[in-house]
Design a protein around this nucleic acid. Structure first.
Lengths: 339, 339
DNA sequence: GCAATTTTTGCTCACGGGAGCAAGAGGAAT
DNA sequence: ATTCCTCTTGCTCCCGTGAGCAAAAATTGC
């Protein structure tokens, strides 16, 4: 069917539709532009003609002419964390609903971040959204220097860089809530399991917990660091630290910086150390990944209000301002059986 | 620092660089085009000038003029499956390395697929990659009719539509291998746990397993269907089917269509039914998600050769042909403790 | 019914770069 | 030195749309 093939490959433009509908090209374009003023009659004519011809506006051209691409770049550096999948789902769903397309860029490692931003620049995205951990302040500085985009948004992590917009959960508030919970449930020998401290990029979670404990009990809780947010690594570290210990010296609770670490810790405590959770050692996480609700883990954790956060992100995107749009959110502690 | 601000927001174009370097605009563009012919001397001059001014070519314009966008749309419909995260990681990494950018589109549900494709069309992507399950043949028909892109690639699932390109693991071969394994390990009362059968979209896995068992033992193994690839749903279904059963009537192995189902089944068999795996009931999955290697599950499963598959996908993208590019791959059975 | 508005329409110019051609520069062969 | 050939370079003409203005049409007020 040659006719069909032609229909498939022909490049129908607004001019063709204009001919078909008996109006000018600009009226056609206006029919597809939200804010444009057009009479209901021509709108109808254009719609019908476009339908017949199978016309779809070309956003590349629109973007070129209007200097707004309605495209945002999503830079992600760690696909191993299941929480990323949750965030991506929420982001893609809500952004699409609001008319934003997403350029997904896998930032391989710290050294690659510059190239990733270059990628985004070349597509002239309106904003860059960073989800990840290796984006420390040094990197942000570089990014801002070379940028061809209007906004740099750090999602689900706070940043002190004045030129970025950070949308995140309040680490201090949330971790204090967690510390209070740990205290009230009667735990007295906590150990904090933290992720990597990459230069200036640090989460306030550990500091907050340690500070709470010091204030309330006058002692510094033990802290252990894992070099990546990886369950297997967390397992190794926890095994190293705890396996040789006299049972009396074991912590009664492991407060983890996120669920990935908590899950790794849970596995090793149960299967390698042969201890019960929460009877021998309790565990808490952070993020509320889907697995946390699994009966195997039933992890006490802290849920970020992702939907709210993404909805605010959308607001930020259409806001002409560029600074002072930082916002901290309050989530909810989810108590399960692990602590 | 007003100078800094200007540098950030000014729109440096090839013309500016041309002035700075003392060459024509076209020479500047050529310096950034792979196949262009340019003398080493002017290349150097242009590079230096571009560096000084912070020039980055605008891919929207390039795409508009050349009718190649170097953009592919990635349509995903199910963010709950951790295997998707693995696929996305591999796809984003390799495609980016090869110079392809990715438009990520969350296809909410079957009815939304048309709109999702429209999105892709408007950005004039060179190809659409479908990863998911709700893309059945009806939907593909619609997609192909309205398409403004050159290739429609079904990734990690086979399709019989002649106008699409399917890159997937050979379901027949892989499931036969699994069936042989199950047979040789001495299991004799298998039950097959299948995912939803959405109209014409079906995986050959169940058919293959059932057929093998019929051929070798003359009996039809029991099969059970779960209405979505969701661990929690799988748990419910398995509990419903097995909990009331006389122990003698229980299957000795649960062969699952993918790891998500297998993980849901594992949880419920252990925690609700109180049975041991693999002693009371063995379990196999398919995909080899990261969790499968977790000591909790230690799931016997089948690993798809994702890297190979994505590398072939890249080949397909730059191939001028559009049909007969289908390819089936062979993966590897990963034997662990669950069966 | 006519002027004053308001809405709608067509148009010029611009967005930033690519294809392909013709002119220019440089080198090799004679 | 001349001719021929090849590699570079500049140029014209697009790609498909939007901003903003001026002309045209429709609407309002009296």
């Amino acid at each position: 069917m040659p006719d069909d093939k032609k229909a498939i490959f022909a490049n129908i433009t607004a001019d063709d539709v204009a001919n078909e509908a008996g109006v000018s090209r600009w009226t056609v374009n206006r029919a597809f532009r939200k804010e444009a003023s057009i009479s209901p009659k021509s709108l109808e004519k254009v719609r019908a003609a476009a339908e017949r011809l199978g016309y779809v506006p070309d956003l590349r051209a629109a973007s070129l002419a209007s200097d707004r691409s309605n495209l945002v770049a999503l830079l992600i550096d760690d696909f191993a964390n299941p929480h990323k999948l949750v965030m991506m789902e929420r982001l893609t769903r809500i952004l699409r609903r609001e008319g934003w397309d997403i350029l997904l860029i896998n930032t391989l490692d710290r050294n690659d971040a510059g190239h990733a931003l270059l990628n985004a620049s070349q597509r002239r995205v309106d904003a860059v959204i960073l989800i990840g951990l290796q984006f420390d302040d040094d990197m942000l500085e570089t990014a801002l220097h070379a940028r061809r985009f209007r906004k740099l948004i750090i999602f689900a992590r706070s940043s002190r860089n004045p030129d970025t917009i950070s949308i995140a959960v309040d680490d201090v508030e949330s971790m204090n809530e967690m510390a209070i919970y740990v205290n009230e449930r009667g735990y007295r020998r906590p150990m904090f399991l933290a992720g990597p401290r990459t230069s200036s990029a640090h989460l306030l979670r550990k500091e907050t917990f340690v500070e709470y404990w010091r204030q309330h009990f006058g002692i510094e809780p033990e802290t252990v660091e894992v070099s990546a947010y990886d369950p297997a690594l967390a397992s190794d570290v926890v095994e190293n630290v705890l396996s040789s210990r006299n049972p009396a010296m074991l912590p009664d609770i492991l407060v983890c910086e996120n669920d990935s670490l908590a899950i790794g810790a849970t596995d090793v405590i149960r299967h390698k150390l042969g201890l019960r959770i929460p009877e021998d050692i309790a565990i808490t996480g952070f993020d509320d990944v889907p697995q946390a609700d699994n009966p195997n883990y039933s992890l006490t954790t802290y849920r970020q209000p992702l939907t709210e956060m993404v909805e605010y992100l959308v607001e930020v995107l259409s806001n002409p301002d560029q600074t002072n749009l930082n916002r901290l959110f309050t989530g909810a502690l989810i108590a399960r059986r692990s602590a």
